[in-house]
Design a protein around this nucleic acid. Structure first.
Lengths: 230, 230
DNA sequence: TTGACGAATTTGTATATACAAGCTAAACTA
DNA sequence: TAGTTTAGCTTGTATATACAAATTCGTCAA
């Protein structure tokens, strides 16, 4: 199937990012867009719903769809994103170093075989982030240093054909552990920002637990949030 | 209008929270639900979409809608939420103290009249959070100490009839300022978690800038996030 | 001039139909 | 028995229609 509404979403979001539509502008009406893209109004509405959820536009009944100012969202950390995808924005400034890779009998929801991966994320030559991952070996039978250095998410989605779907995340502040001190360039920063996340596949199986340990001065979390209705 | 799909969302979400449907269960099919609630399948789908976005269920094509384990989300901070709404979960353990309330010519997107509100949030008798708000006086003509002590959001939505819609948020770690030291019980915690947020109304007007300054040991950010498609 | 009213436009909700795509389990075949 | 196919279920996408609700703006009247 074509997934027309996703194509339309992509086209309009690109038009907003390239500033063909500017912040404050009103998009063409749903009926106009339906004619432009030779489709039905409902399909347009699905695309606009996505744009609204991702912070591109605000819909106002009776008025239209107003383009929002996306420029403030310059570090889209929200959502489930891999360091690989993030580092593409940083370019050559980011590097990954695998310091530990083992398979053993561990605990991830239930007792079973798991992979342990510890990685140091370098940014501008400094060791800023320590990622400690636990992966289910049932889901990921094989794991190599090369995969860990590039992108595990890429491997899971494109090589294994699995679909990563959602995550529970938690951010807390901790004292640096002995391990943090060894692997990170802490200087005189005396706290660590820890992002703990449980990541799930399409079929709701838990396949990853991560502790992403950040040097506090380099940590920044940016989010776009809609008010939830009660 | 009735907004059937919201009613259905509420009913099903309550059924999940009361554990009528348990984690791992499959909900009745969309066609069955449509018959049960005497409505069309599209209306059911809108309700299920909301449940999915809020982390209640996971939809799997060809299989059904699987109930997720919500129990890990015990401090739903994500989304745009007021301290008032949060403190309801804390019960009598939370208290608000207004330490500053002034109107003057300030800067919120453009030079105009604004309200400045500084509030200390007490939890279990300790001064944990310092909230520094800037409100547009155009949107909120009148503001009293009593309103600031209960809930400004409540006042805006129920008294003024305005609709709070979305926010840009940013979380960073900072050194405590002189003000932080004066107003908070910092003990020997030497960093502050700062949540900066810009909050907007329905019609995309910016009406609030907030710096919510938390003692780091009491800070916890919990989130449910779906993987964004590219 | 000002206010009230109403028509036109825009988004929101509800319903119906059709077919595609993915999963499961029964039926079938070698 | 073991593997394959198929039928029937599930959710996903696309389309069409109808009416409700909110906004905008022109028209009309006092």
């Amino acid at each position: 199937m074509k997934k027309k509404f996703q194509d339309i979403y992509r086209q309009i979001s690109e038009s907003i990012e390239s500033e063909y539509y500017r912040a404050g502008d009103t998009l063409p009406s749903e009926n106009q867009l339906a004619e432009t893209y030779d489709t039905s109004r409902e399909t347009i509405r699905k695309a606009l719903k996505m744009l609204s959820e991702h912070g591109y536009i605000q819909k106002v009944q009776g008025k239209g769809s107003i383009v929002l100012d996306m420029s403030r969202i310059n570090f889209p950390f929200s959502g489930v994103t891999s360091f690989r995808e993030l580092s593409q924005k940083l370019g050559s400034r980011a590097k990954t170093e695998v310091v530990y890779l083992e398979q053993d009998l561990g605990h991830l929801e239930v007792e079973s075989m798991v992979w342990h991966v510890h990685r140091i994320r370098h940014i501008d030559g400094e060791r800023i982030i320590l990622d400690k991952d636990v992966f289910s070996a049932e889901v990921i039978p094989q794991l190599t240093k090369a995969i860990c250095e590039t992108s595990i998410y890429d491997y899971i989605e494109n090589e294994l054909g699995l679909t990563i779907s959602f995550a529970h995340k938690e951010i807390v502040i901790e004292e640096p552990s002995e391990e943090d001190r060894r692997y990170l360039d802490l200087a005189d920063h005396h706290v660590i920002v820890v992002i703990k996340s449980y990541t799930y596949l399409d079929d709701t199986t838990l396949f990853q637990y991560t502790e992403s340990r950040h040097r506090s001065d380099k940590f920044r979390f940016v989010d776009f949030a809609r008010r939830v209705q009660r």
